[in-house]
Structure formats: structure tokens, C-alpha cells
Design a protein around this nucleic acid. Structure first.
Lengths: 163, 163
DNA sequence: TATTGTTATACTCTATAACTATA
DNA sequence: TATAGTTATAGAGTATAACAATA
């Protein structure tokens, strides 16, 4: 059973958000999704990107994941072996690739999203309608603000201090 | 620069939450915090637990992380080598350990939390007071409901489908 | 004998650097 | 030559299984 971090001592806005972030980090930050489960978090990130922008080359995917070409190449090796992703020769350049989700990959992503939404629905059902409404209003606004800053190139949530 | 997933097609509550989860996953799901940064996500989870419950043994820590003893033992090897965690002989049983954050480990965690809260504050500043209030009300309620379910042993957010 | 912690082995993920092929 | 992609190598994380020491 996962540990649940404590409520923040201060009635501070940022501390509240931070504590929820830490809650989620502990709850599904474990690496055991490599175990009985078919797809790791890293592979999942690839699927997210390809679902949104199919047909991109490896270099573009590398940029979207903020990773390195070799790592992404190996990720694609395994995803291709798993039948979730397909490497196709580019029509414009013979040294580039086109990366696509296979129908299996698309179905997998759809199933995963369903499962997550089902699990989230259980939590949301434990909240009052007013609380739920506040959460959704707040999250949508947060999402808009975070996306705005991410597009500007800012680090929205640093994982560790720089010094 | 990180990719930003699209807004959900449906005006569905769970899809909204799910899309925020995916946003965060892409934004700070990258593994490059192993690079120039001092502590990995896995190590960070250890610090969270030890900050909350210092003096526990390796078995208890393993349970809190929902991991395996060997993985946690190796994690502690590196955290001890980094000077963030300390293994001490238990006072009650000679085959058990007591795990503690060192002063360095505690200071590190405090600094990290400050940095995160500073970054989050930038996003929150981009939101209206009403939106911010809604977010905090909603997150606190979500947190309570999620903790309730986590304590009951439920998987709050499955990473991949079971089938 | 059962439990705590560590080590042996094997896999995924990550990165830098070297390499092949194309532009 | 510069770029796209792959492979070589090395380090960290994860897990199962075998092991030592203790209860």
C-alpha cells in the first residue's frame, strides 16, 4: 500500500499544490509498471506524442520528449517489437523515418485512458458536486496557465534544485 | 521543450483530470533528472517517505514504496553514498536497520520543495483569484478522497490496463 | 523455520560517443 | 560537411531468486 504524504503545515497555495503533486508521485511513481504491465512510463510518453502527432521523425520525437536520439531509438525498438509503434520510410528524405501508432497502439492508449478515467471517477465520486466543480474549474485554469508557460520554455515543475 | 497534450474532446470530468495528469507526466516525466541533477525520482520518493517516517526499517520502506527489498537496498546504497540517507543498527533487533535522513538529506528536500513551490507560484500567478481559489478547494477535496481510497488499498491511477 | 537485509543475475531506461547512410 | 538514425558502452532502476545472519 502506498504512503500518503501529510497535509501541508502552512495554509499556503503553492504548498497545497505541491503536496498533491507529491501524493501523485508516490502513488504512481513506482517503477513496477514494467512488471506485469505491458508499457512503461517512458513508452507511454512516446504513445502520447505519437497519438497527437503521428508521422513525425525520430529527431522531432526526441525533441518532444526532451530526451536523446539513442534513448528514443531504443524505446522505439521495443515499442515496435511490442507492435504498438511502426517505423516507416519517409517519403521526402531517405535518411528520415516516419513514426506512427499501429492500430494496436491506438487501441492500447484508448484502453489505458478508459482505465485511468474509471479509477479517477471512483475518487471523484467521493467528492461533493461543489468540490468536483471547483476542482474542474481550477484544473482547467491551471492547465491553461501551465501550457502557456511551457510554451514559453519555462520549467514548470523542477524535479531537483539546480545548485 | 516539452509537448503539451490537447484539451479533451469531451466535456467529461474524468477526462479533464486525466488530461492534467498527462500534462504533468510529459512535463516532468523525463528521465534526465539523473543527468545534471542530483537526485532521481525514485530516490526522491525515498526521501519523501523518510522525511515523514524516519527510523523505519528497510522492509517498511519497501512496503511504503510498493517496491522490492533488493531495489530499495540498492537505492539506499546510492542515497547513503550521496550522504542523504543513513543506515543505523536497530536498537531492538540485530537483523533490522533504522533508516534516517541525514541533515544534508533534510536540507536537500527543503530546498527542492522551495524550488518547486516557486515554479508553481509562477503558474498560479497566471490564474485569477477565483480560479486559484477553485483549484485549491478542489485539490484539497481530491486529496482527501484519494487518500481515503489509497488507504483502502485501491489503485488510484493505474498506469496501464490489466488485460 | 521464518524474517531481515544483501548479493547475483537479467531486463528496461538513460546518456555520451562512435558509426553508417544520406543531404 | 552536416544531419538522421543506429549501435557501443556505461550507469541507474527494477525485479526474482539465492544467500547470510538473526529471531
Amino acid at each position: 500500500m502506498a504512503l500518503v504524504p501529510p497535509f501541508p503545515d502552512r495554509a499556503d497555495d503553492t504548498a497545497t499544490v505541491s503536496s498533491v503533486v507529491e501524493l501523485l508521485e508516490v502513488l504512481w511513481g513506482g517503477g513496477r509498471e514494467m512488471d506485469a504491465r505491458p508499457v512503461s512510463v517512458s513508452q507511454l510518453r512516446v504513445l502520447y506524442v505519437l497519438a497527437e502527432s503521428g508521422g513525425i521523425n525520430l529527431r522531432t520525437l526526441t525533441g518532444a520528449l526532451d530526451s536523446s536520439p539513442s534513448s528514443v531509438s531504443r524505446l522505439c525498438d521495443r515499442l515496435e517489437a511490442a507492435g504498438l509503434v511502426q517505423r516507416t520510410a519517409s517519403t521526402t528524405s531517405r535518411r528520415e523515418l516516419e513514426l506512427h501508432l499501429t492500430p494496436t497502439g491506438l487501441a492500447f492508449l484508448a484502453d489505458l485512458r478508459s482505465a485511468r478515467e474509471r479509477a479517477l471517477a471512483e475518487v471523484l465520486d467521493d467528492m461533493s458536486p461543489a468540490e468536483r466543480g471547483a476542482l474542474l474549474t481550477g484544473l482547467n485554469a491551471f492547465r491553461t496557465a501551465a501550457a502557456r508557460r511551457a510554451e514559453a520554455g519555462a520549467d514548470v515543475v523542477p524535479v531537483a534544485r539546480t545548485a
